[in-house]
Simulated scan of single mutants.
Amino acid sequence: MSAKITYSNESMKQYAVENLNETEESARRGIEEILSWIKDTPGLNAKKDDRSILAFLRGCKFNLELTKKKMRNFYVMKVERPEWFSNRDPDLSELSELINLGVFIPLKKYHNNMLVVIIRTAAHDPKIHKQDNVFKAGKMILDLAVEENFDNATVYGVCAVFDMTNISLAHARQLPPHVIKKAVFAWQNYYCRPKQLEFINAPIYVNVVLKIFKSFMSEKLQGRVRVHFSGNDALHKVVSKEILPFEYGGNEGPVADLIEYWSKKICERKDWFKNDEQYKAEFSL
């Protein structure tokens, strides 16, 4: 390990020790072993810097075999899902449009130290926008949000709020079981852990769709899914209103400001996305 691990505060360090089995020694040994494994795995093309490896180690609580499995799945997914991970250019018209529609919005403040993202499942028009491009835009913003909130996102995890306002049958048709299976696989093999999955403004029939989602989830992930039918009041019971935008009954300004912030950020990091595309496996599972 070339650089010493630092934490925002002492409580984060203590949390990492107690919940992730993370110490300076376990991090050093873990990074060394995973780096050696990457070098001995032809065609994996994984990132070899300490920070990228540490993210996976944290996501697997420093279980080295689980880390290797998740990293293999992640880098293979990147080559098997070119519709999500190739040509991630924010200047492409549909990607730009989806970003500016606010299909995926990270918040600026944390909830219980977790990075919070609002996923507006019906912000796009299914007659115009492909679901694959919705996923691509969302993953681009998630990658950038984790990059900019690395310690909180990788130590404490991510709270995902799925806003189902105005969800329609046309939106649901964009999510047949084989697409849902790919989406859940991505959640379970990303380098940051989804700690809360909160579905808000849900229609009565939502359980039909969620049943399919849950059929592909691990038991642990299933236990993190919660459905809320009564709007913002229900949301405030699980995410503090102090960090939410006005539209969600919060105090942190309008959604439009967050969209503008992330749209600008993603354009500034265009070269970062271009560079990231080289890191994908040369083999398939």
Rank of each mutant, 00 (worst) to 15 (best):
S215D: 08
Y205R: 12
L175S: 14
V146M: 11
F185C: 06
L144S: 07
K220I: 10
F199H: 00
R224S: 04
Q174C: 12
V155C: 13
A153F: 03
Y190D: 15
V184A: 09
G250E: 01
S240E: 07
Q188F: 08
Q196R: 13
T165G: 04
F150Q: 09
I243F: 03
S215W: 10
D271R: 14
G231C: 01
E198W: 03
N207M: 07
F213S: 07
K220R: 12
K195W: 02
S230A: 12
P177K: 06
V208P: 01
V239G: 03
L197G: 02
Q188T: 12
W187P: 04
G250F: 01
M164V: 09
N207F: 09
Q196T: 06
H228E: 00
F213I: 05
P194M: 14
Q222I: 03
Y205P: 11
R193C: 09
F162W: 03
A234C: 04
F162K: 00
L221P: 03
L221A: 05
H171C: 00
E247H: 01
K265A: 13
G249N: 01
S168F: 00
G223C: 06
K265V: 05
P245L: 01
L258N: 05
D233T: 11
E147P: 07
I200T: 14
I243Q: 03
I212R: 07
W187A: 14
G223D: 12
C267I: 14
M217H: 13
E260W: 04
G253H: 00
S240P: 02
Y248M: 05
V227W: 00
V146G: 10
I212T: 13
Y191F: 13
E219Y: 13
I180R: 08
A170W: 06
R269F: 10
N201T: 06
Y190K: 07
Q196P: 01
